[in-house]
Amino acid sequence: MIADEAEMASMMAAAQKGDAGMYRALLAEVQLWLERYYRKRVAPAQLDDLVQEVMLAVHHKRATWDPSRAFYPWLAAIARYRWVDHLRKVYRSAEDELGDHDAPEDSEEEAVMARMSLERLFVHLPEKQVEVIELVKIEGLSIAEASAKTGQSESLVKVNIHRGLKKLSALVEKAE
């Protein structure tokens, strides 16, 4: 089970003061949380890279967490920011399939996770944009394949991906 908000906040506050033991424990929890957070929205082969990238960001930007605020919304904002960045950059290779690699749900965390999940970002996008982002940026189809599958023209697929990613990046902090 992943540590709750109070435990994470307490570990992070200790880490900001230089407690390496607490920091190690915190990073292990952060890693678990990120793996769950991204599990349906990142191809398995890219998951580790993205998790590492976020952990490095957490390390370099640890001073930006205010101990008087909650920890998870801070972590989720960084995770979303890096994810949108990742969607812009990465093109998944054809052999990476999105399988059923979900970790079991932890019911105590569900409410918090749901508020800050990546799905929350997608509900603000038109269905056509979500569809092509999922097909091209997550499942790794080509523009032509996505066009054939969705019935959208190739140029419309490109436009919808561009507009969708732009909107996602504007929603990183807002959507909850």
């Binding site: 930007k61 605020r69 909650a70 919304p73 904002a77 800050m116 902090e173 807002k174 959507a175």
Partner: peptide, 10 residues
């Protein structure tokens, strides 16, 4: 406020 990331910043 934007310098400190947080889901729910409006």
């Amino acid at each position: 406020k934007m310098a400190s990331p947080r889901v729910g910043n409006s």
